[in-house]
C-alpha cells in the first residue's frame, strides 16, 4: 500500500492533534475549541509530513477495532511482566539467565516496528536493544531458546498479529 494523498495525511494529523487538545484542556468552552482547532491546523501544517504516511486510512474501523483489542492484551502482558519482575527481584537467589538474542519480524512499517519494540520492552523479561532491517536484538533476562526461530516465536509473534493489521502490513 502506497502513501496516502497530502490532504488525507494533513486531515489525519489535524484530527489527532485536536483530540489530544480536547483531552488536555478538558473543557467544551467554544473559545478553547476554536483555539485548539486553529493550533491543530498550524502545527499539522508544520509536521504532517513526518507524522504520518497513510493518512485517514489509519482510522479505518477494522484498525480501530484491532487497536482497542490490543490494549487489554498489552496491559495484561505488562502486568504479568511486573509480577515476573517482582518474582526475580524479591527472590533471594535472584533467578536470572540473561543474554542478547536476535529475532526476525515480518513488519515493514517503521511505526509498527516502534510499537513492537516498545511492547517488547514493556513485556515479561525482554527489552529491545537495537533494530536493523527486519532483525530485532532483544536483551532477554531468562533465555529459553537462543536460536533465531525459537526466539522470534517466543517474543515477537504474539504482538505481530495485532500490529500487522493496525499498521498496514496486512498485504
Amino acid at each position: 500500500m502506497g502513501e496516502a494523498s497530502k490532504v488525507s495525511r494533513y486531515l489525519y494529523t489535524v484530527i489527532i492533534l485536536f483530540v489530544i487538545w480536547l483531552f488536555l484542556t478538558n473543557s467544551l468552552d467554544p473559545q478553547e475549541l476554536t483555539m485548539g482547532f486553529v493550533l491543530s491546523l498550524i502545527i499539522a501544517a508544520l509536521t504532517y509530513q513526518v507524522f504520518t504516511k497513510y493518512g485517514l486510512s489509519n482510522l479505518h474501523p477494522k484498525r480501530i477495532l484491532y487497536t482497542v483489542a490490543y490494549i487489554p492484551y498489552f496491559l495484561w502482558a505488562m502486568i504479568m511482566a511486573n509480577l515476573d519482575v517482582a518474582y526475580r527481584v524479591l527472590h533471594p537467589k535472584r533467578p536470572i539467565n540473561p543474554g542478547i538474542v536476535e529475532i526476525k519480524t515480518n513488519l515493514t512499517n517503521d511505526i509498527a516496528k516502534l510499537v513492537l519494540a516498545n511492547s517488547i520492552t514493556l513485556t515479561p523479561g525482554t527489552m529491545s536493544v537495537d533494530v536493523k532491517g527486519d532483525r530485532l536484538y532483544i536483551h532477554w533476562i531468562d533465555v529459553k531458546d537462543p536460536s533465531l526461530e525459537g526466539a522470534s516465536k517466543h517474543i515477537g509473534k504474539p504482538f505481530e498479529k495485532f500490529l500487522r493489521v493496525i499498521f498496514h502490513d496486512d498485504n
Partner: peptide, 11 residues
C-alpha cells in the same frame, strides 16, 4: 558474566 548468548556483538 553469567550471560549465555550475545547475538548483537556479531551484528
Amino acid at each position: 558474566e553469567g550471560s549465555i548468548v550475545d547475538k548483537y556483538k556479531e551484528a
